[in-house]
Structure formats: structure tokens, C-alpha cells
Design a protein around this nucleic acid. Structure first.
Lengths: 209, 209
DNA sequence: TAGATTGTTAATCGATTAACAATC
DNA sequence: TAGATTGTTAATCGATTAACAATC
């Protein structure tokens, strides 16, 4: 059973669920389980079992009728689908409060993403380091990012300059941006942006309170 | 034109977009604009103008034909819809690396959310403080949260204990949880959970790289 | 009034679910 | 084999878009 790589058939909303499945599988693996099924996964995630089976079947048959899914095997397949088999290097832009917090977060390294360079335009911060990673001046972006072929960046600068920074990053070859600034970014086709704005999540819940 | 409060007619996916609209409006207001329209907003956000008009019209008529939307007025109405007219108090659970980072983030206060108490089970951390907010022992959760009628909590503890913490929070009256631990939480009906897991966003983008 | 943009309806599109044959 | 659960199809459900009458 080979991976179907008719990638353009796969809705983005399905891709968005795969990391969630992966997280649930990790959890089950830590409990010492080797086998699971769409029903168990669904209960865990509050998603219907039919949806899980349908999502997974888009990439080929990862399960066995009558048995379910081997956790380890399914994890490996999802890593493969999501291109997570190698560690990705990330550039972090901004070394203020927010950037420092992002840089200190251990979850990136633990789950396959390594912050390999940090940039800031404040001369006082340049040549300091965060957990051993030196803070470089913004001028270095144009050389360092292509040099190490870094494709992913995180933006942790004030909202007022986030678009400008994004434009620069796109110009030097960045293809995926995780934006912590509370502002929408415009990027050309083929450059992907995801947003981390905890306040919008809170505002979504207060509606119901 | 009064607010329609047939709240159960409103799809959650629409509620989820309102904070994004609010963010765009704030941006336009800062540029000194007083008036906007569904087309301008849509271009800003990469959303169709029809969708914006439809979403907003679910709550009553906020615009004027031929003119568009008055930014200030629309902001106020959205604040009203989302219950953002008063500052909300939040409890933060966990004062490790992640909890500290969350506590330091200035965006909450700036946008109407105040972290008013912090809890941790590490005796070494208790009685220290973060930006002037004392770290209390976990035993205090049961008294402090009802005392101040806090309805929103943020979880920044290790994934292994996050469910346990969530159960406790629900038991003492918390109705909305922003969960930073990379694990799905199960909560009873009427308790809302949102997730902040930057790694899942990165994993979603690597698919396309 | 003429021009512009909303609010709303109807049509389209896409995602979820139910059900079951296939098969381990 | 009998039992269980997948993979997949068809039906349902819900969300988005197109279009335009209403109206500022």
C-alpha cells in the first residue's frame, strides 16, 4: 500500500487535522498502547470515527479491517505525509519579550523544529544570545537564511512592522511563516502563514459566557 | 436597529471570525480611517466581501447601504456581541517556562484580559511573583477562583497533568479554558476549550513544503 | 437624483455522516 | 469461520458565493 501523492486532491482542512491525530497517537503510545481504532481516536478528540477513517484513507490504507490502526505505523505514515521525517530549521525574527518567550519554549525542539537563528534590529540586543543562539542584526537576514536554506520563520515583532518583516522574509526564500503578531499578513501564493493570537481565542469563548 | 440575540442560530465558525474582523478594524482605525466596507475588509483578510456582509448581518444591520461600515460603531457592536465591554479576569495555572512566558505577554492586558492570579504546585515557586502577581499554591484554586468569580483560565502545565488540572478548574466554576498543553482536553458541555499549540501549525505548513 | 454598497435570497460548493460491503 | 473494523459510497448537512433588490 503506497502513499497516494495526489496532493492537490487533499483538502487543507484535512491536513489541519493530521497534526491533531499525531498528538493523540503520541498520547496513546505513551500509555503503552500499540493498537488503536477510529472509534477510540474519535472519542479522544471529539471527532466522528467516520471522519477519521475518511481522512486517513485519503492517503492510502493505513489500517487493517477487524483490527484497527497500529499506532507506531500510523505515526510514521503521518510523519511521512507531513514531511516531518527530518528536523526543520526555523528563523525567529524579534527578540523582545515575545521573541524571548518563543525562543525559550522547549516544545519546538522536542517535536522536530529547531530555532537555528534569531534576528532583531535593536543594537543593544545584537550579540547577546538566547539559550546559546546568538541574536543577529536584521541586516544578516538576507545572507543567513539563504545560506542555511531555511524555509520556515516565526515572526515575533510588533504588529506595526510585521508586514514589512514578512515581505523581507519572502524575498529571501521563506515559504512558511508562523506569525505571533496580531495582524493579518499578505503573502504571495505558495507562501503559507499561520497565526498564533491567544487573544482571539479568548474573544471567541467570551461570546458564550 | 437592535442586536439579534437568537444566539443559537449563529454558527460557531462565524463567532470565530468576529475577533479577526475586530483585529482588522483596529488596524484600520489606527490608520485614521473612519469608514470601511466589506470589500476593503475582505481584501485585508483574504475573505470574500459576501461572507463578511453575511456574517455581520446575522447580528443586525451594522452598515449603511451606499456608505459601508463606520469603523468605531462596528467595533463597539462587535465588542458588545462578544461580551468584551468589560475587562475579563483570568487565572493562570502553571508558572514554569511556559507559564512565565504567558504571564509576561502584554497583549492580554492591552486587549481586555487581565491575569489576576497564578497557581503552581512547586513549593519553590509559591510566594514568588511574576510582574507583581503572586504565585499561589494549587490548594488555593478552590477558594480563590470562586471568590473572585473567575470564569476563564489558561493552562500552562505539562501535558501529563493538564486533564487533571482541567477537571479541577471545571469543578470550581471555570467556563472557558485556553490550553497551552499539547493535549486534547475533555470537558463537560458548557465548558469551552481553545488550544494554543504552535507546533501543530508548523506541522500543517510542512505538508506543503 | 445617481451611485454605491448593504442585507438577503437562492444556487453552488464542500465537508460530514451514515451505512455497509470488503476484508483482516 | 465469526467477529470486528476498515475503506468507501451515497446521502445529508452546512457553509460559501453570486447576484440583485433595497436603500442610504
Amino acid at each position: 500500500m503506497t502513499l497516494k501523492h495526489l496532493q492537490h486532491d487533499i483538502p487543507d482542512i484535512v491536513i489541519g487535522r493530521l497534526p491533531i491525530y499525531l498528538r493523540a497517537l503520541q498520547h496513546l503510545a505513551q500509555e503503552g498502547k500499540e493498537l488503536t481504532n477510529s472509534d477510540e481516536l474519535g472519542k479522544h478528540l471529539g471527532i466522528s470515527s467516520a471522519q477519521i477513517r475518511k481522512d486517513l484513507s485519503l492517503f492510502g490504507g493505513f489500517g487493517k479491517q477487524g483490527a484497527g490502526y497500529r499506532i507506531q505505523y500510523l505515526q510514521n505514515k503521518l510523519y511521512e505525509v507531513l514531511n516531518l521525517q527530518k528536523e526543520w530549521e526555523i528563523a525567529l525574527i524579534g527578540a523582545g519579550d515575545l521573541g524571548r518567550a518563543v525562543a525559550h519554549y522547549k516544545g519546538f525542539k522536542e517535536r522536530g523544529f529547531k530555532i537555528s537563528c534569531i534576528f532583531d534590529n535593536d543594537p543593544h540586543k545584537v550579540n547577546q544570545n538566547i539559550d546559546g543562539i546568538p541574536i543577529q542584526p536584521m541586516e544578516n537576514v538576507a545572507t543567513a537564511i539563504p545560506q542555511y536554506a531555511i524555509k520556515i520563520a516565526m515572526i515575533a515583532v510588533p504588529a506595526t512592522v510585521a508586514q514589512e518583516v514578512a515581505d523581507l522574509l519572502v524575498a529571501v526564500g521563506i515559504r512558511a511563516i508562523l506569525n505571533y503578531a496580531p495582524i493579518n499578513l499578505e503573502t504571495p501564493d505558495g507562501v503559507f502563514v499561520q497565526y498564533i493570537d491567544p487573544v482571539t481565542h479568548l474573544q471567541r469563548m467570551t461570546y458564550y459566557l
